[in-house]
Nucleic acid binder design. Structure first.
Length: 490
RNA sequence: GCGGAAGUAGCUCAUUUGGUAGAGCGGUAGCCUUCCAAGCUUCAGGUGGCCGGUUCGAGCCCGGUCUUCCGCUCCA
């Protein structure tokens, strides 16, 4: 990352705070690490992105319905999903190189070395010991295992290790007002992903909405991860919002649906007229425990290419796990005729294709892509600059600014009339203070795509000046056409 | 969490070896103004991140602490 790109990212963060998009959480108490609040314009923009996604999923696809599941879920959910076992990694630091390792990765690397040296038995014994110690959560024993096997840091080459510490990425809290005899009995977790709320409701949704495979369930909502370190502004937060869709398909068709959603989701991004050259796919080679195929949609942020969205082929892992842990059948009866047998496909646990996008990341994507410090050459040849957010009109926080040129001669009254006729349909902003140029710049800074100005000519022929954010061009149109023009753009 | 850097008004920064904090921009209220940050006036806003130490005296020196940024790690 270059210093210049670094600066741009800093400027975007400053701009976001100064113009009421994003504030650090609890800022008067020095903030809370990796937690942020959305301000007046930020909450509008975030809501608009969420609605744009929701509409594209549940309204434009006939076979996708939405749900809104609770953040709290039965603790066994996380046992079944694998989060309790796989979401807490013991870590160890080398004091000399300051490099941090996952303990299992470190020991496995040593085992690989032993295998290459032909010491198969030692390799096996080492892994066996590690598994036992991990299962027992015996961190002292694991550290001793590392020391006994003379495992060193690849950077410093020393065995100067810290103690092993557990980082559980799920937030815990207590459920119910009365303390239980066994404290473990009333522990609940804040969900680390929204997907499980969809899986456990699979049959409820399928039956009540009378869905036939293939179909999808969409959901937006908060998720929580106690990250070891969370930084880079709203890119990695401890509390964040996901927009997820789980698409249930007949086993054997998952590859084609994976391909379909991979393309479909990129097209969604491009439908906001975001630059195609800043997007790329990143196919996963090393897969998560549940995944069959997986890729990320990455976007080139000022801090480099980063993941915005993931598309995963999850097989029937999640539903099978829930069937096993809940002892409730998670099957679907497929009445369609299988041409190979001439009979219905029958009962099966569906396969799942997941699309999962971070709303906060999408917000940051929009902001990074929109932000521009533009140099302007004026008519008299002098130069000027403006900060403008080229936010797509469909999701801009404010759609239209209504500005009387002067705050007298009846101009504000006409402007108020226009405001009253537009504000039931979209978000407007009214201002009569300061010079017109200054008001335009303020609207540029929050990304308002249209400004209209009411002047004396309006009183004569009912026309107004409309000024476009991106081109700064302006033209006269009848005041009666303003609402329609904005509605067509959003 | 570990290592590096930084913290003075909303923002950008001053305060030249320690002597009780200032400017520009922005904001606010008003005057004036017929289209891209114009001008004049008014007002608001800081116990110098916080705590402690040295000193007659600390924004400045020392220690601790908190927060932010960068790297390691993880992921949406």
């Amino acid at each position: 990352m270059s210093t210049q790109q670094d600066n741009i990212f800093q400027q975007i963060i400053s701009h976001a705070k100064e113009y009421g998009f994003v504030f650090p959480s609890s800022e008067i108490y020095d903030g809370l690490s990796a937690v942020y609040d959305y301000g007046p314009y930020g909450s509008e923009l975030k809501k608009n992105i969420r609605e744009y996604w929701w509409k594209s999923m549940t309204q434009l696809h006939d076979n996708i319905v939405g749900i809104d599941a609770a953040i709290f879920m039965h603790p066994t959910t996380w046992k079944a999903s694998g989060h309790i076992d796989n979401f807490s990694d013991p870590m160890i630091d080398n004091k000399d190189s300051k490099k941090r390792y996952r303990v299992d990765h470190l020991i496995e690397a040593k085992a690989d070395t032993l295998a290459q040296e032909g010491k198969k038995e030692e390799e096996f014994a080492l892994l066996q010991k590690m598994d036992n110690l991990l299962a027992a959560e015996d961190f002292d024993g694991l550290k001793q295992l590392i020391l006994d096997n003379n495992i060193t840091c690849s950077v410093s080459g020393t065995a100067n290790w810290t103690d092993i510490r557990q980082f559980n990425l799920m937030f815990k809290t207590e459920f119910g007002a009365v303390a239980a005899d066994n404290p473990d009995d009333n522990i609940v977790y804040l969900r680390p992903e929204t997907a499980q709320g969809i899986f456990v409701n699979f049959l409820n949704v399928q039956k009540t909405a009378r869905m036939k495979i293939p179909f999808g369930i969409a959901q937006t909502g908060k998720a929580f991860r106690n990250e070891i370190v969370a930084r880079q502004f709203i890119f990695r937060m401890r509390e964040f919002e996901q927009m997820e869709m789980q698409f249930f398909v007949r086993p054997g068709t998952e590859a084609e649906w994976y391909k379909f959603w991979k393309e479909e989701r990129l097209n969604w991004h491009l439908s906001l007229r975001l630059p195609k050259e800043k997007y790329r796919y990143h196919d996963h080679i090393k897969l998560a425990h549940y995944a069959k195929e997986a890729c990320d949609i990455e976007f080139e942020f000022p801090i480099g290419f980063k993941e915005v969205e993931g598309i995963h082929s999850r097989s029937n892992f999640d539903l099978s796990q829930h069937q096993q842990y809940s002892r409730k059948k998670q099957q679907y009866f497929d009445n369609d005729i299988n041409p190979a047998t001439g009979k219905p496909y029958g009962n099966y646990i569906p396969y799942v294709i997941e699309t999962s996008i971070g709303l906060d990341r999408m917000f940051l994507l929009i902001l990074s892509n929109a932000y521009e410090e533009e140099k302007i050459t004026k008519e008299d040849g002098s130069t000027d600059s403006r900060v403008v957010l080229h936010i797509p009109a469909k999701i801009a926080p404010v759609k239209l600014a209504i500005l009387p040129l002067l705050k007298k001669d009846g101009l504000p009254e006409i402007a108020q009339e226009l405001l009253a006729s537009c504000k039931p349909y979209f978000k407007c902003f009214y201002e009569e203070k300061d010079a017109i140029g200054k008001r335009y710049r303020r609207q540029d800074a929050i990304g308002t795509p249209f400004c209209v100005t009411i002047d004396h000519q309006t009183k004569e022929d009912n026309t107004v000046t409309i000024r476009y954010r991106d081109s700064m061009q302006q033209e006269r149109i009848p005041i009666s056409k303003v609402k329609q023009l904005v509605l067509e753009a959003i």
